[in-house]
Each structure stands twice: as structure tokens, then as C-alpha cells.
Amino acid sequence: MPVYTVHAPTPGGADLRATDKFVFVRDGFHFWAMVFGPLWLLWNRLWLALIGWIVFLAAFDAGLSSLGVGRRSIVLANIIVALLMGFEASTLRRWTLSRGKWRQLDIVVADDHDTAERRFFERWSEKQRGIVNDQWAVDRGGPPPTRGVPGQPFSSPPPIPAGGIIGLFPEPGGSR
């Protein structure tokens, strides 16, 4: 199943008025980024990545040509670089968002983009009911720990110190 990261514009903008600006970035291989690298970067408005891609590819091809590498080898090397672009396209998108002062709110596992949005907003809206704008704690989808589960270190109360109880009452159940 694909994994999506959810990004919000700014810490102050992560409220109900900014939900239409949230960005879901799918992690994994992007075929169109491999086939049409510069056009994919333009489409997703990754300007610095596009400039870096053009400079790197020009320097890479010029370096291989100056070393006397054959035409077929240069084409093969460019195919490998395009394959790398397909694998790292989502990383470039997340990097660009983090440079623009966006922050990652959550990670969602879903079959497609619509399911990822639905799962994220179900969890996020539940958190918004109790605590307004507290998005610093990211819920990873697991239930909170409980005390009644055997085998967990916090299932039983901590041991009493060797010198007795520390606090206002010197012994358990003693008079006040």
C-alpha cells in the first residue's frame, strides 16, 4: 500500500480554514518523473530542483564526453539518472515544501489519494474537537497505551522507595 505524507502551510495555518491547502505527497516511484523529468518538475513547481536537474545533467554529460565515454554509455548513464529521478521525486517535493516553511502533520497509509485524505481528516478532525490547533503531537494511528494490559512496563504502579513514601504522608494509609 502506498504511504502518503501530509503537509500544512505553516504552524499557525493548520486549522479548519487551511484544510484545502494541505498537500498529500505519495512516497514511492513516480513513472512520469522518470520519463519526463524536467516537465514533471515544472508541473509540480519545483523550481530549484529543476535548475539543479538541468545543471547536473549538463555537467554530467559534459564530464562524460570529456572523459571520452561513448555515445551509448552516455545514454545509458542518462537512463540511470532518469531512474534515480523517478525514485527520488517525492523526496524532492517534500524538500521543496519544507523549504517553504510547510511542516509535516502526519503519515497515512492508503490505497489511493482519496482514501488517504479521508483517513487523515477522520483522525485530524477527532483531534480538533478536543484540542484546538494542537498539531505538534502526531498520531501514528495506534491506540494509546493502557494500564490494564499485562506485560507492559507501566501496567503496575512504580515500587515504593526504600526509605518509605516521599511526600506529605509518611506511610501509606496513615493519618493526616
Rank of each mutant, 00 (worst) to 15 (best):
V3S: 15
V3G: 01
V3Y: 03
V3W: 04
V6N: 00
P11K: 03
P11Q: 03
G12W: 09
D15A: 04
L16H: 07
R17D: 10
T19H: 09
V23G: 02
D27H: 12
G28E: 04
F29A: 11
F36S: 02
F36G: 02
G37Q: 06
P38C: 01
L41K: 02
L48F: 09
L48S: 03
A49L: 01
A49C: 03
L50H: 00
I51S: 10
I51A: 14
F56I: 09
L57G: 08
A58L: 14
A58I: 11
A59P: 00
G63F: 02
G63K: 03
G68V: 09
G70M: 03
R71S: 10
R71H: 13
I74T: 01
N78W: 12
V81D: 04
A82Q: 12
L83E: 01
R99L: 15
K101E: 14
K101V: 07
Q104A: 09
I107T: 15
D114K: 13
D114Q: 13
R118M: 03
R119C: 09
R123P: 05
W124K: 02
S125R: 15
N133R: 06
W136T: 15
V138D: 06
R140H: 13
G148A: 12
V149F: 11
G151L: 07
F154W: 15
I165W: 14
I166G: 07
G167A: 06
F169T: 14
F169D: 08
F169C: 08
P170D: 05
G174I: 01
R176Y: 02
